[in-house]
Design a protein around this nucleic acid. Sequence first.
DNA 1: ATAAAGTATGAAGTATACTACACACTTTGT
DNA 2: ACAAAGTGTGTAGTATACTTCATACTTTAT
Lengths: 121, 121
Amino acid sequence: MLINEIAKRTGVSIATLRYYENLGLIRGVADENVKTNNYKNYDEEVIVKVEIIKEAKEVDFTLAEIRKMLEIWYGSASRHKGQIELFTTKISEIDTKIKRLKQIKKRLENVKIELEKGSCT
Amino acid sequence: MLINEIAKRTGVSIATLRYYENLGLIRGVADENVKTNNYKNYDEEVIVKVEIIKEAKEVDFTLAEIRKMLEIWYGSASRHKGQIELFTTKISEIDTKIKRLKQIKKRLENVKIELEKGSCT
DNA sequence: ATAAAGTATGAAGTATACTACACACTTTGT
DNA sequence: ACAAAGTGTGTAGTATACTTCATACTTTAT
């Protein structure tokens, strides 16, 4: 499929998709048989990748980090020890983040309660 | 205390503290009695604020959002309905974020397991 | 006394993640 | 046939959050 379909199905703008492609997060290939243009074709896998990117971004992985992860996910590359370490690190970072979020949530809930009390006077 | 003490006690650089001050997140005041200089004095509260900023940043509040929250926390300002809504919104955003983090964590754990399998061949 | 270290301010530079624009070419609809 | 819409490439601009630099004055240590 062409880039606009990826954009429509993922909700990510064409400009952003091209930006991701430049960074190496996704890749489309121009059909060798078609010589009239150099339009790139993206396959279903790209949709999945973009969804992963969206998810990972929401929890604040940088695009550089996401790129690394996707390379491991989809790479035919060899499995290195460093890759396992990357994932181990990321998993514990996520645990820390969840803890902090819960802390902040409590804080916010307390302030909210105070605000609600205040608005009843 | 002077800015360098805030920096030392919070681990946030002087440059960043000044940046926060420009954005209105913290504030120091020049002592009226001292006319030889315009050094600003920061009190204990600033330490707490900086710690809150650090915590909130870790869970990806923008400085603009953090500023709003600090204003409500420490503001003598009136309690508006909008403030309660801000906190309600933020709390549900945090819940969403926690859910996503758990999703991603599972994903990463699965990939890690696969990597570990691979490294045993 | 004087050099080193600290402080204030303003402006410019960096990194990340986009967004917008210009230009050229291709495909599609009527 | 031809205008509208889509595609590729490259460059520039925007926003956020800093960091660095330059300048000038103040305090502190020796």
